[in-house]
């Protein structure tokens, strides 16, 4: 059956059962491999006994899970070559920071291959990587960098926050004929939610409304979305919380429509501030709905420096739900919250 038969819209999950974010990814990978013999997984420690933090444990087709040497750059090229030869590779990385070793292949090759040849070829390649932060992991094991990758034409960037979204969007990534970078936050792995058992795909470029309100639009993806929702619910804030789910393509129409209603915009982005995803949303909203803004749009990002290791420093570095709540309350009171350099 072709992949297009599995398309679903974002209706609330039906026939679901509680599943963790990690189990939802595992189920998606397993179903993709069972459904389509062209799908295989490859990556450093992809075949280790831990199953990539459990996300690839006990798969039905272990023969299609290939471990690799530490050689991310060439292995990305290998995955691209396999995709150009008719397969649908899932290239998995235990840490998002490792992608930087493969930037030549990701930016010059994977992202450009279709444009260079006027889309005569399909590049059905999913690059899956896990954002792991905290516990002193420091500056080289904690980065997200979705803004950096979204800046490159030819890459779709997906970072779901819920088990339902992660399964449907992952399967949509595998079904896509163009490269998709799929970012999973390690801190979401134990979160649970209703997930249908059937194979389904969800569309890219559509926001989810995680909290309804009329006085402030907050945009946040991945773990930041979960933190922002917690802040809204704990403090009963009048906030319209949008999770873009896909950084690129971006549902700017959904964001602008919300801002036109609320008149205020705060972007919470777990990434570096300069020229990043939050800056992009603020720029696009300013271009399209400047007149709707009742006060300057604000960003909460990581500080513009590498991640520290000591727990004391980490807790100061990363925005917490409480700090998000304080920022939202400040904006609702008409105050500024500290620009792009962290709150």
């Amino acid at each position: 059956m072709p992949w297009s038969k599995f398309r679903q819209d974002y209706a609330a999950p039906t026939g679901g059962r509680p599943l963790s974010y990690c189990a939802a990814i595992r189920e998606a990978i397993d179903q993709a491999m069972r459904h389509d013999p062209r799908v295989f997984a490859i990556g450093l420690d992809a075949d280790d006994k831990f199953g990539v933090f459990g996300s690839m444990a006990n798969l039905t087709h272990p023969e299609r899970v290939l471990g690799t040497p530490i050689a991310e750059n060439a292995m990305t090229g290998v995955a691209l070559g396999a995709a150009l030869s008719g397969l649908r590779p899932i290239h998995v990385h235990l840490r998002n920071d490792f992608l930087l070793v493969a930037m030549d292949q990701i930016v010059n090759y994977v992202a450009k291959w279709q444009d260079m040849f006027d889309h005569q070829v399909r590049v059905p390649l999913v690059i899956r990587s896990i954002i792991g932060r905290g516990w002193g992991c420091g500056a080289q094991h904690s980065q997200s960098l979705h803004g950096l990758f979204a800046q490159v034409p030819g890459l779709k960037v997906v970072m779901p926050s819920t088990p339902y979204d992660v399964k449907g969007l992952f399967l949509a990534a595998v079904a896509d004929d163009s490269p998709v970078l799929f970012l999973e936050h390690r801190w979401l792995y134990k979160n649970t939610g209703d997930v249908p058992e059937a194979l389904y795909t969800l569309p890219f470029g559509r926001c989810a409304r995680l909290h309804e309100g009329e006085s402030l639009t907050v945009v946040a993806a991945s773990l930041a979305a979960v933190h922002a929702r917690l802040a809204c619910e704990t403090h009963g804030l009048d906030v319209d919380l949008l999770d873009p789910r896909t950084i690129k393509p971006l549902d700017i129409d959904g964001i602008v429509a919300s801002v036109q209603r609320t008149g205020r915009l705060l972007v919470v982005d777990h990434d570096f501030p300069f020229g990043g995803f939050a800056a992009e949303i603020v720029a696009q909203v300013a271009e399209r709905a400047h007149g709707a803004l009742r006060q300057p749009p604000q960003r909460i990002c990581f500080p513009d420096r590498g991640m520290p290791a000591s727990g004391v420093l980490e807790r100061a570095y990363y925005p917490t739900p409480d700090r998000l709540a304080a920022a939202m309350q400040a904006m609702l009171a008409g105050e500024l919250v500290g620009g792009g350099h962290g709150f």
Binding site: N73, G77, V78, G81, L84, S85, G86, Q105, N108
Partner: peptide, 12 residues
């Protein structure tokens, strides 16, 4: 970089 792509074709 294209050296790696030929390897991918072989893997496929």
């Amino acid at each position: 970089g294209s050296i790696a792509l030929g390897v991918g074709a072989g893997l496929a």
